[in-house]
Simulated assay, not measured.
Amino acid sequence: MVTAILLASGFSKRFADDKLLMDFSGKPVIEYTMEAISHADVSEKLLIQRDHTYTDLGNKYGFQSIKNTKAKLGQSQSLLLGVKHCPENQAMMFFVADQPLLTTGIINKLITTHRENPEQIILPVINGQDKNPVIFPAAFRPALLEVTGDQGGRSIIKAFPDKIKRVAFDDPLCFTDIDTYSDYQRLLSEKTYLD
Rank of each mutant, 00 (worst) to 15 (best):
A4E: 07
L6T: 05
L7V: 11
L7S: 06
G10Y: 03
F11E: 15
S12Y: 07
K13G: 05
K13D: 00
A16L: 12
D17V: 09
D17S: 10
D18I: 08
K19G: 04
L20P: 03
L20I: 00
F24G: 00
G26F: 11
P28H: 09
I30W: 04
I30R: 04
E31Q: 10
E31V: 06
E35Q: 15
E35D: 14
I37G: 06
S38C: 05
S38T: 08
V42Y: 07
V42G: 00
K45P: 03
K45G: 06
K45D: 10
L46W: 04
L47P: 02
Q49H: 00
R50Y: 01
H52T: 13
T53K: 09
T53Y: 02
T55S: 13
T55D: 11
T55R: 10
T55E: 12
T55I: 08
T55Q: 13
D56C: 10
G58S: 14
G58V: 12
N59F: 03
N59Y: 08
Y61D: 01
Y61V: 03
G62N: 05
F63I: 08
Q64D: 15
Q64N: 13
S65F: 04
I66S: 05
K67M: 14
N68D: 15
N68R: 08
T69V: 15
T69C: 15
K70E: 15
A71Q: 08
K72R: 15
G74E: 04
G74I: 07
Q77F: 07
S78F: 11
S78T: 08
S78M: 06
L80I: 12
G82T: 02
V83D: 03
K84P: 13
C86G: 05
C86A: 15
C86W: 00
C86H: 01
N89L: 04
N89K: 10
Q90I: 05
A91I: 04
M92H: 05
F94I: 15
F95T: 01
F95C: 03
F95H: 03
F95V: 05
V96A: 11
V96Q: 12
V96R: 07
A97M: 11
A97P: 06
D98N: 13
D98T: 03
P100H: 11
L102T: 14
L102V: 15
L102C: 11
T104N: 06
G105L: 11
G105N: 14
I106A: 11
I106H: 09
I107D: 09
K109V: 10
T113K: 01
R115C: 09
P118W: 03
P118T: 01
E119T: 11
L123G: 01
L123Y: 06
P124I: 09
P124R: 10
V125R: 13
I126S: 05
I126D: 04
N127T: 12
N127G: 14
N127A: 14
N127Q: 12
N127F: 02
Q129N: 14
Q129S: 14
D130R: 13
N132P: 02
P133W: 14
V134C: 02
I135C: 02
F136N: 03
A138C: 08
A143R: 12
A143H: 12
L144V: 00
E146M: 07
V147G: 00
D150G: 04
D150I: 03
D150A: 01
D150F: 08
